[in-house]
Amino acid sequence: MSGLDDLKKKMVTGPDGEQFEVNPINDYYCSKKPEVTTPAHPYIEKFFNWARANSLWVLGWGTGCGSIELPPLTTPRFDMYRYGVQMRPTPRQACVFIISGYLAVKTLKRVIRAYEQMQGPKFVIALGSCTINGGMYYDSYNTINRLDYYMPVDVYIAGCMPRPEAILSGFVALKKRIKEGKGEGANEYAEKFEWYKANQKKIIKQWDMPDYNW
């Protein structure tokens, strides 16, 4: 099965022979929309933001050619760990999503899914020109040009490709932003959910998932 087929409504037969309808989109997935979350008391929130800024767990997933620049970060030369940055293999536990370069439409769908599965507050670092204006793929038939049409971006790191040093400085910038309490991308996404979805659905023709992937 592929594509939308397995999300079509279907009749199934229960153990006692009774027939009923299963609608995968409704039955398999939670159909709730994301909600805007309110920060805690300002002082506590400040403390929390400090912790969030110093514990950046990056989703270990390279989306484009920029992903080649990420592994060096773990080497002695760059050593991102000293900034409290580390890789997590599952979006549930990660709070930073690095979009490493151009995004094919096919990849975008996965990116959206992974982004929505991350728990807020969550931050996005966009890597390279491709995420800003499409870069060398600006007229490609299947890559997107501007990432922030599709999800809120906290930090852009320009370059093609940005070197690891640039990425490190991006982390520092992100830290600053978080500490200032501006890292509210998740809330922004919830607020402008309809707009983001419309943009996403415009470009992703085969929308075979719920509106929000919890």
Partner: peptide
């Protein structure tokens, strides 16, 4: 959430 709201390698 429902049963398929799981991480599944995106």
């Amino acid at each position: 959430v429902e049963m398929f709201n799981i991480v599944y390698s995106a």
